[in-house]
Amino acid sequence: MHRRLRKKKTKIRRRKRKSQAMNPSPLSPPWVDLPSDVTANILQRLDVVEILQTAQKVCTTWWKVCKDPSMWKVIDMRDSLPDFNIEIMCREAVDRSQGQLTDINIGYFGTDELILYISERCSGLKSLTLKLCCDVSSYALREAVRNFPKLEELHLLFHCIGAEDVENIGTSCPQLKSFTLNAAGTNYPGLGHDDSWALAVSKSMLNLHHLCLLGHNMTSEGLEAILDGCPHLQSLDIRRCFSIDLNKGNLGKRCSERIKDLKFPHDAIDDCNKIASEFVHCYNYYDSEFSNYSDSDLFGNYEDYSEGDYEDYTDLFADDFLASFLPGGHQYI
């Protein structure tokens, strides 16, 4: 009896070996055996949408790497087309960082809820960029930066905030070294002179190394205040600040001697026009397209955002406002 069982088991083992020899297991893809840090370096070259929609689904190894908080220390969504899921995807990326987020760049789709969501979870943030995020109010931004005491860079591209908000930002972020406030519409003929933004910077942002105040109505006195209040300033962008007279006293000489990288009021603004053109393209896309994927498929635990949340989107950008950014239109910037 025992001999028969042994013979039977031997035959089974031989058949298995023969079957394995005839049908070898498929080789694992070569990228599976890469070190995790190398894999992360490769995947970080993709944008957030590509990672969440596609890359993480390739294999188990990539899934694990894409869930690692170190993958999400930097989140760059400056060129993400706005649709009904993009804010949800941004929140997912923020959550995956588990508080390790240091640098985030948001274009077009930012909202009050999103910026406050980030501030509640990522107090170690060092760099924040908002590009044409017209749904982020001054109040939400002011509240958010209170939770960013380590913030070193803040760039607001075509974002309107008041001088009091600028001063509050400087007070809340004492380590701020780089600040950008590109205005839309502040330097339009007939609006008069206004040094309030410049004075707010000079009072509250004493450690600045880089400053861009493009398109503001500050005067030579405002610029003098900035030079007095920001002794560490190395680069200064005052393009479209036409109320500044650099020939007044020794202001021009002082700027040239103090500032290593100086952009003058009449210097070209091609880079700003490029941003505005991108916005018009993005706006047209948003107006004509709908999302091709489901919220529940990607992030079932997150609240769905309906079309009603965006019903007033087009009212924010009237034709005359858009025309100000287009070639041949009124150059507000």
Rank of each mutant, 00 (worst) to 15 (best):
A163R: 06
A93N: 03
S97Q: 03
G308R: 09
D135V: 00
D319P: 12
E143N: 07
L206R: 14
L52Y: 09
P189A: 06
G329D: 08
D297T: 13
P327E: 10
Q56F: 07
C230P: 06
M77K: 03
L227E: 03
R240F: 15
D165G: 08
G308V: 10
K57Q: 11
K177V: 06
T171S: 12
V65S: 05
N301T: 10
S256I: 07
E221Y: 09
N273H: 15
D297C: 11
L227R: 03
S277T: 12
V94L: 00
V65L: 04
Q331V: 14
K131E: 14
V136H: 03
P35M: 00
K131Y: 08
E153L: 12
S119Q: 01
C66V: 06
S172L: 00
S277H: 14
D76F: 02
M71V: 05
R45W: 07
K274M: 15
D309E: 13
T60M: 08
Y332G: 11
D47K: 05
D135G: 00
G300T: 06
A144Q: 01
D103R: 02
L236K: 05
A144Y: 00
I88L: 13
G308L: 12
L101W: 02
S123V: 10
T180A: 13
W31T: 05
G300I: 07
D83C: 09
H2Q: 08
D237P: 13
Y302T: 12
P149H: 00
I88E: 08
D315P: 00
R6D: 10
K260R: 11
F179W: 01
R4Q: 09
M22R: 15
F158G: 04
K248M: 12
K274F: 14
K131R: 13
L132M: 15
R45S: 07
L114W: 02
D261L: 11
C282I: 12
A323F: 11
A200R: 00
N187E: 13
G124W: 01
D309I: 06
K260V: 10
D79F: 14
N41A: 15
L34E: 04
L227V: 06
S138Q: 14
L181K: 04
F148T: 07
S123W: 05
T102L: 08
S137M: 01
S123A: 11
N105L: 04
T61M: 08
K67C: 13
L176W: 03
K203W: 06
S243I: 07
L191V: 07
G185R: 03
F84G: 10
S70Y: 08
G300E: 09
V280G: 01
I86G: 02
A163S: 15
T39Y: 03
K203Q: 14
I244R: 02
G300D: 13
K18W: 07
M205W: 04
D33W: 09
L154F: 04
Q44G: 12
T54Q: 10
L128D: 02
I51R: 07
K260H: 08
N301L: 09
K150M: 13
W31S: 05
E87R: 15
D309H: 11
F179R: 01
A40F: 01
L43H: 05
C272L: 14
A55R: 05
P69M: 03
A21M: 09
W197H: 15
V32F: 08
R15P: 04
V32I: 15
E307R: 10
H209D: 07
T54L: 11
L206V: 15
S277W: 09
Y283K: 08
C173W: 01
D315M: 08
L246I: 14
P189R: 03
S294A: 12
L326F: 08
H232R: 12
I259F: 05
